[in-house]
Amino acid sequence: MEKMNCLKVINLKAKIHNQEILRGVNLEIPRGEVHAIMGKNGSGKSTLAKIMAGHPAYEVTEGQVLLDGQSILEMEPDERSRAGLFLAFQYPVEVPGVTIANFLRAALQARLPEGEEIEATEYYARLYEKMDLLKIPRNFTSRSVNEGFSGGEKKRCEILQMAMLEPKYAILDETDSGLDIDALKIVAEGVNSMRCPERGMLVITHYQRLLEYIVPDRVHVMVNGRIVLSGDKDLALKLENEGYEWVEQLESVSS
């Protein structure tokens, strides 16, 4: 029996330009939990996030990704999104000329059945409420998506989108990179406010710093395209203090 109410990755292998990047990843994020994946640059963390979201550049050669028991690897990225999967990008992409307000409205509209329209007053009320939470000024809505944004603004905008789309599962890819400590706190607060029994989250980072503010239920360590070790939040601290070398040795033993 396949377990429902979790985001499950089973023996996932993937490559790009004939180079194998994921070499059999296993992972299970139940709703209501926050998991973290740590690992050095190039270990395959971000690739895992992109593949789960359906980036067309990668080729999945083996394995499964199940969202609440449903296989999503055959689905288009937009279908996965509407099924409840959200990815906060490490490098959010600029969409010139398209305002945040219009972009989010189009994204929400895409979730409605044919013929139904977003109610404008309600929409703006909700948008402003979430923006206040993330300390985003009101004039932000009329700026083009990510165009000319500072690093911090980009990351906050990702969290704003997550808050508006209310996904079942959210993957946050290096959401802490490029943030100063104040911005980090705001972003973490936004993420924490979305923790709830109906939502699972996967936080990808290579610093322990973020995990001080978003305390994970589980921590996984990725080395060379595989999860080689899992533990509780203390594992993050240990990695911070002792580095990754000892885990890498574990990896070479296991393979």
Binding site: A53, G54, H55, P56, E76, P77, D78, R80, S81, R82, F86, L87, F89, P92, V93, V95, P96, G97, V98, N102, F103, L104, A106, A107, L108, A110, R111, S144, Q161, L165
Partner: peptide, 20 residues
């Protein structure tokens, strides 16, 4: 890909980018 990740299909994403 970014726009699709937010739930817009490829055609809608393209339209939105052109309108932008």
């Amino acid at each position: 890909f970014y726009m699709q990740q937010r739930g817009l299909d490829e055609g809608q994403a393209m339209s939105l980018a052109v309108n932008g």
